[in-house]
């Protein structure tokens, strides 16, 4: 058990080092940092001085080691624009993105799992058919269109919810949160739905498919034959057995929600890292881009690590190092 966990941790570190390498290579070789910083009219002496200051003349592995070492201390250099430290820029905007991602993930998981189970249990009912056909719309409409439609309906026509921004936020020193004010919560609703709708339909369809599969298993038939109630059969026997695939997909989706909140953040002018990244792309702000890449890689690795550890928690066969060869 401990060995499995240690092995997973080691793998996670290797993946992060590789992500750091790509991030470093972008930083080092995409565009020319010297030109970006000094502009075209700089003298040769100025260039040489800056190259030395940035360590660009050191051997490449040394530069990489330096990069990793500085990244470990959250030092990603200064943004080309505004010359603020990148770490500070990200720290300023990360809470907005994380709160948006987490809210939309919770929304997606709760509604996805509930409707998934419902539609699996009540196969062929009117409500099931309605949910399933509506979910097709959710999958096929692009995110920005959903966002714009929601703004049109709830902000412009009904005037219930704000159409952009985070509303009032509370500063906790190291974190700014929108969870503690009414306007902050109201501002979260539309972007969360926009961002989570696709994930919700995905989780719902997965839950439904897994549930239908599990309900065919012999231990479910036996539980029914032994007279156990529907509630016992569904929640004691079936639900734990669909958790592993559902958690896997949810984890991956949470990763992409954080990484690709960009569109939603653009539509709702949400002051998160996605918006920061888009602006960095416009201005070829390489340090911001490479730090963003590292951040997203880190988020994916951490989430997958947590997912793997959850597997061990759920499935005793995996705890004993036995693969699922029987089922």
């Amino acid at each position: 058990m401990l060995i499995i966990i240690l092995r997973r941790l080691l793998q996670a570190v290797m993946v992060l080092l590789f992500v750091a390498l790509i991030s470093f290579l972008i930083f080092r070789f995409v565009g020319n940092p010297v030109e970006s910083l000094l502009g075209q009219e700089a003298t040769v002496a100025q260039r040489a001085a800056l190259e030395n200051a940035l360590g660009l003349n050191d051997p490449i592995y040394e530069q990489y080691a330096n990069f990793v070492w500085r990244a470990l201390q959250f030092d990603f250099g200064n943004s080309y624009r505004g010359a603020l430290p990148v770490a500070e820029l990200i720290a300023l905007r990360l809470p907005a993105t994380l709160e948006l991602a987490i809210t939309s993930a919770i929304f997606a998981v709760i509604f996805g799992v509930i409707t998934g189970i419902y539609t699996a249990i009540n196969r062929g009912s009117m409500m099931t058919n309605f949910i399933l056909s509506t979910s097709l719309v959710g999958v096929s409409l692009p995110t920005f269109l959903i966002g714009v439609l929601l703004i049109w309906l709830f902000s412009v026509e009904l005037n219930w919810l704000p159409s952009f921004g985070r509303g009032e936020v509370v500063d906790l020193g190291w974190w700014t949160t929108g969870y503690l004010t009414v306007s902050g919560l109201k501002s979260l609703i539309l972007p969360s739905i926009t961002l989570g709708l696709y994930q919700m339909t995905l989780i719902m369809r997965l839950t439904r498919a897994e549930m239908l599969e599990v309900l065919r298993q012999d231990y479910i038939r036996l539980a029914v034959a032994l007279g156990q109630s529907k509630r016992q059969v569904y929640f004691f026997h079936a639900l734990p057995n669909i958790l592993i695939p559902v958690i896997t997909i949810t984890g991956l989706q949470l990763g992409s929600v954080i990484a690709f909140a960009i569109i939603t953040e653009t539509v709702f002018q949400w002051p998160g890292v996605g918006l920061l990244f888009i602006n960095a792309v416009y201005f070829v702000d390489i340090p911001v881009m490479s730090a963003y890449l590292l951040l997203v890689g880190f988020a994916f690795v951490v989430i997958n690590l947590v997912v793997d550890l959850l597997y061990l928690l759920i499935d005793p066969r995996l705890r004993d190092g036995q693969l699922r060869k029987e089922v």
């Binding site: 012999d218 036996l222 004691f236 026997h237 057995n241 759920i314 005793p316």
Partner: peptide, 16 residues
Amino acid sequence: ISMIFQDPLVSLNPLR
């Protein structure tokens, strides 16, 4: 009335 099925390998919930 209770029942016993053919395959004991899949008659028990693997996670409980």
